[in-house]
């Protein structure tokens, strides 16, 4: 059984995704790190589905669908921001400043 190792790898990938989000400033790369985190979660789902039933795999389908939708909308937003600001560097985008 590979449940334990799979969950370990999932944790590593997820932590790397978080570290990436924290480390980068480029919106697109951050986006990719988010995808990485989603995939880490998918790995955990699949590993658990192996012994606990098919529900985990079904979840992965939904995660993929959401990821696809998110990628489409998210990248469209990045495009819009770029058109507006001529940059995708988050350091220069502080519209949320209070």
């Amino acid at each position: 059984m590979l449940l334990g190792p799979s969950l370990g790898v999932s944790a590593v990938l997820f932590a790397l995704g978080v570290a990436g989000v924290l480390l980068r400033r480029n919106a697109i790369v951050i986006f990719m790190c988010v995808e990485l985190m989603l995939n880490a979660a998918n790995l955990a789902f699949v590993a658990l589905a192996q012994s606990l039933g098919v529900a985990g795999q079904i979840f992965v389908f939904f995660v993929m669908a959401v990821a696809a939708a998110e990628a489409a909308v998210g990248l469209a937003i990045i495009l819009a921001i770029y058109r507006h600001k001529q940059t995708v560097d988050l350091q220069n985008i502080n519209l949320l400043k209070g």
Binding site: L3, L7, A11, F14, A44, S51
Partner: peptide
């Protein structure tokens, strides 16, 4: 995550269900 992701926390594996 490692602390939470131990197999025991995921319940008793029921074998090769898939």
């Amino acid at each position: 995550l490692l602390r939470g992701a131990t197999p025991s926390a995921a319940g008793t594996p029921a074998g090769d269900t898939m």
